[in-house]
Computed example of a mutant assay.
Amino acid sequence: MMSIMHATLTDPLDVDTFAKPVQQRRFAAAMEQIASNRTPGALARVYISAAPRTMNSPKWDSWLTQITEELPAGVEILHYRNTVTNDRPYDWDSLVEQLDGLIVIGKQKRAGSRVYLLGPIARLELRSLIARKPVLLYGHNLGLIPVIDCKSQVLAPEDAPRLKLIAPKRWKEDSATLQAALHALTPGSGDTGTGQHASAVDHLAHPFAAPPQ
Rank of each mutant, 00 (worst) to 15 (best):
A122T: 08
K107P: 00
I121T: 14
L13M: 09
L78P: 00
V154A: 02
Q33L: 07
F18H: 05
G41S: 08
K109A: 13
P120K: 09
D149N: 04
I103P: 03
R81S: 14
R123A: 08
R132W: 04
R127Q: 15
V46E: 11
V84L: 04
Q24G: 00
L117R: 03
P120S: 15
D159L: 11
S199E: 13
S36W: 06
R88D: 14
A28T: 13
N141S: 15
P187H: 03
M31Q: 14
F208C: 03
I121G: 03
E97L: 12
A209D: 15
R123P: 00
A44W: 06
A181P: 03
L13P: 00
I130A: 10
A29S: 15
L137R: 00
L71P: 04
H79E: 14
V135T: 15
R110T: 10
P52D: 13
V75H: 06
V96P: 01
D100R: 09
S49M: 07
L99W: 09
L182E: 08
Q213H: 10
A131W: 03
V201K: 01
A19T: 02
G112M: 09
Y80Q: 11
K169P: 01
A167R: 02
E97D: 15
R114M: 06
F18L: 02
N82Q: 12
